[in-house]
Simulated assay, not measured.
Amino acid sequence: MKALIVGAGRLGTQIAQVLAAARNDVTLVDHDEDRIAELEGRLAVRLAAGDACEPGFLEHTGALTTDLLIAATGNDEDNLVISLLAKRRFDVPRVAARVNDAENTWLFDHRWGVDIPVPAATPLISLIEEATGATDTVALLRLSKAGVNVIETAITAQSRAAGRALADIVLPAGTVITTVIRDGQPTVPTPDIRLQAGDELLVVSHAATEQEIHAAFQ
């Protein structure tokens, strides 16, 4: 799935992390250039700085081919304009928008291009589930909200883990390998599975950093 998220605050960043960890094609945009610069290298998503209320910028960031747009800025007027452009001009199949002021809830409907209105106080689990139809993504979101990091790492021919069984890999404390993706197919990891070049691993940890996870395999 291709997702375009507008608003790189805590909410939009969290959604981007979760959707990217679930192997979706994610672009995160924000009008604040400093905020985008701050996120460079920290997220496995495309980042862009600009005004998403401008049709040209939305088109530049992939609105014509996106499957899901989430307007998650802190401004209801912006979220409505972005949603309307997404639906009417770019024909985005699914549009979700955050409602910051409860008094504006009545505006967030199909007339403004909104398929899924999300009140500020509402957890995003239902939003992600409805928008993507992926229960695995919902599980990842719950992990993220619980303070558990969701990290991807890839095995190459040069990786020291290539050819070794999972049981022989020493992982940081509090770390679990949840999925091994091989030839595009996710498999449940077992201790005797031997890692191969091209394998991608989805790892969750409540304590280890991304660098520590990569170091265990590379």
Rank of each mutant, 00 (worst) to 15 (best):
A165M: 11
D78E: 13
H214I: 03
E129Q: 14
V26E: 01
T156F: 07
D192V: 10
L201S: 03
A22F: 04
A173W: 04
R35S: 00
A48D: 03
D32Y: 01
I116D: 04
P119L: 10
V45S: 05
D109S: 10
I151T: 10
I116E: 11
V45F: 02
R160P: 00
A120P: 01
I82P: 04
A131M: 13
L171H: 08
A208H: 05
R142I: 03
I36P: 00
A21I: 04
V138K: 15
A134M: 14
V170M: 04
T209Y: 09
D109L: 11
L84A: 14
T178Q: 12
Q14K: 13
A8R: 10
W112Y: 15
P119H: 11
R89F: 08
R46C: 00
K2P: 00
L166S: 02
E152A: 12
V204M: 11
R94D: 00
A167D: 06
S83W: 11
A8G: 02
I181F: 11
V203G: 02
L127K: 07
G74W: 13
A134W: 06
A21D: 03
I181H: 08
E40A: 08
R164Y: 01
T209D: 07
R35K: 15
H31M: 12
R42T: 01
G133M: 08
V176I: 15
D76T: 11
R98K: 15
E77T: 09
P186S: 12
E59W: 09
A3L: 05
P119C: 04
T73Q: 04
A72Y: 08
R164S: 06
L107Q: 09
E212C: 04
V95C: 09
L202E: 05
D67P: 02
E129H: 13
D192Y: 06
L166D: 01
K145F: 00
V204Y: 03
G147S: 04
E130W: 11
T156L: 12
A22W: 05
A86M: 06
P191M: 10
V95A: 10
V99M: 10
L171Q: 06
L39W: 07
H60M: 14
L28A: 06
G198A: 01
A139N: 14
E152R: 15
G133P: 05
T135V: 13
R88W: 02
E59F: 09
L64A: 15
V203S: 06
T105S: 11
I82H: 11
T73N: 03
D199A: 08
R182Q: 05
V29W: 02
G56V: 12
V170F: 04
L143K: 15
E200K: 14
D115A: 09
G198F: 03
N100C: 08
A215D: 15
T73L: 02
V170T: 15
R98Q: 11
P119N: 09
T209S: 15
R98L: 14
A44V: 05
A207Y: 03
E130M: 13
I5C: 04
R98M: 12
N24D: 08
I177M: 06
V138S: 15
I181S: 03
A131E: 08
V204N: 04
L124I: 13
A207R: 15
C53G: 11
G198C: 01
C53E: 13
G184Y: 06
R88H: 12
E212M: 06
R194E: 02
I116K: 07
L58I: 11
I15E: 06
T65A: 00
D115R: 12
T61C: 03
V29H: 06
L85I: 14
V26W: 02
I70T: 05
E212D: 12
Q185H: 14
